[in-house]
Structures are given as C-alpha cells and as structure tokens.
Design a protein around this nucleic acid. Structure first.
Length: 288
DNA sequence: AGGCAGGTGGCCA
DNA sequence: TGGCCACCTGCC
C-alpha cells in the first residue's frame, strides 16, 4: 500500500511510547495494532491511519495515499489533541488520594479517545466477558465480513444498518458467541428508529445512559464505556472487574454492590470520574 | 480437563 | 435488593 509522507502533529504535551500504547490499545478502542516496530495502525469510521513517535518523540501520522478522506483535523479530533488534559487532571482529587496520584504518575499523557458513537457501542457489546485480544478479533471479523472497504482490503466496522441486514447465525459465525443475539436485536431496534444514536449522543449523561440501557445486551458497564469513549461523557464511571479490584483493595470497599461502587466513583472522583477511571484501570492492569 | 474472561438478564427469595 | 446461574468461545 502507498502511504503519504509522515507528518508531525503539534501537541502541547506529547505522548510517551507507553501512554500512546495505553491510549490506543489499552481497551478504549479495539481497532489498533502494532503494525511494525513502533508503528501503530488503526481504523475508525472510514479512516485508516498509522501513528508513530519519531526519534525526538514527536507524534507523526500518515495515511494511504488513496484515502484522501483522512485529514490532520480528523486525527486531532479523534485523539482529542486540543483538549487541555492537564487542566482536567488538576481537577481530579489526586491531592487527597495517593493511589490516584500514583496511577496518574504511572501513565503521564494517557488520554481519552473520541470515537464514533455507533462503533463504540458495537465494540463494547462485543466485550462482555472477553479479553482485549478476543474482542479485537471479533471486531476485525465484523469489519472484514460486513463493513465497507476503506482501501486495499482494509475495512471499516459495519454500520448498525449493515448488522441488521445480517442474521444472528452469520454473527455467530464471526465468533460473537452469545453476544450475537443481543447485537442483532439491538441492530433491529436501531434500524426501527433511525437517528436514535445521533440523538442519544447529544443527550446529557443520565438521559443518554437511560436510553442505551434499553438495548438488549447493554447494561450499566457497556453503557458507561460507550458514553465515555464514544460521546465524551466524562462523568461516566464504568465499573468492570479491574475497577472492582481497585476499589476493593485500594479503597477498602469490599462487599459493595456495583451500583454503590458507581456512585462512590462519581461522588469521590467528580465530573471527570471517567478520566480518573482510565488511570486507575491502566495502573491496576500494569500491576496484575 | 475445567475454570475463567473489561457483563447481562432472568429467576428466586 | 441480593444471590445465583446460563450464555459462546478461546486460552491457560
């Protein structure tokens, strides 16, 4: 494949190799992989892009020459390069929370992504009781079998309309397992109400979550991940197995039920609880 | 070989 | 509300 020349993205606070890996491949998105040494290749929407840190640690990108759709601005929007993350970190309660402080220090420049809402929902519906490598395989199968071709055999994730046109059996053949039934039923609901996802994305957090919970196979955790990584609802605090471990071991919350853990997260961590969650999650996984 | 994995929903008290 | 369990599939 022919690629454009590498172009440098100017950033206030550059990534480290570690924080770039954790941001792209730490479980927010399931469509990035290490293509060559130190070159990340990923897909979102109809974008196909490679990223690397050059020898001076500057972030650079390139895209297939044929894919004129991908622009620097599209990448800046996806990576949220113009968000002042340090100002947000400053509003987290790290001054009174030494474990949070350690987690933040362990992953300097870890960021949240701004992914397309519809495909964020799809990715996390695949994630139930699966580890990241398996989720990535499911997403790749969905894209290759049902999604539009971007360029030279690279495919986008399917739209919900494309999924609705497939059978549950087809979805099962892509390795989705018991998730196939709910993903198919959710696709049917979305097709019945065109534009509903666009609407949900614009609603305030509480209302948006309520609307997502209507879809079969979407519970509190998947709804929160979708809103945090696909709709910039930073108060969303996904409670997964890793965060449960953190809250039990580091915050002494053994025996608390999930709804209470969610409430603790939102109250203790505040309007950017989801960003704090990402640091706690990354730090816990790094020390497993 | 059996248990477990970034969950959810149904059923029971 | 709280506890238990089935559910696909692949990996250890």
């Amino acid at each position: 494949m022919n690629w454009t020349d590498w172009q440098t993205l100017s950033i206030e606070n550059p990534f480290t190799a570690n924080s770039l890996r954790e941001t792209l491949d730490g479980g927010q998105a399931f469509r990035w992989s290490l293509e060559q040494e130190d070159i990340w290749q990923g897909t979102w929407g109809l974008h196909l892009t490679q990223l690397r840190l050059d020898p001076t640690q500057s972030l650079q990108f390139r895209h297939p020459s044929k894919n004129r759709f991908t622009t620097e601005q599209a990448i800046r929007d996806y990576l949220l390069l113009d968000t002042d993350w340090n100002a947000i970190i400053d509003q987290l309660p790290w001054r009174s929370d030494s474990h949070l402080q350690s987690s933040i220090q362990a992953f300097p420049e870890l960021r949240l992504l701004n992914q397309p809402f519809a495909e964020t929902l799809l990715g996390f519906m695949c994630s139930a009781t699966k580890q990241i490598p398996q989720i990535k395989i499911m997403c790749a199968n969905l894209a290759n079998k049902l999604g539009d071709e971007i360029v030279d055999g690279a495919h986008a994730l399917p739209t919900w309309e494309q999924i609705a046109q497939s059978s549950e059996e087809t979805l099962r053949s892509l390795g989705l397992g018991f998730r196939a039934k709910n993903i198919k039923r959710t696709a049917d609901l979305i097709v019945q109400d065109p534009g509903c996802l666009d609407t949900i994305e614009t609603l305030p957090y509480e209302e948006a979550k309520e609307r997502l919970l209507v879809f079969p196979g979407v519970g509190s955790k998947i709804a929160d991940c979708t809103l945090l990584f696909g709709a910039r609802k930073y108060e969303a605090f996904p409670v997964d197995t890793w965060i449960i471990k953190v809250l039990q071991r580091r915050y002494g919350l053994e025996g608390w039920a999930n709804p209470q853990l969610e409430q603790f997260g939102r109250i203790h961590l505040g309007p950017y609880a989801g960003y704090a969650q990402q640091f706690l999650f990354a730090y816990e996984r790094a020390n497993r």
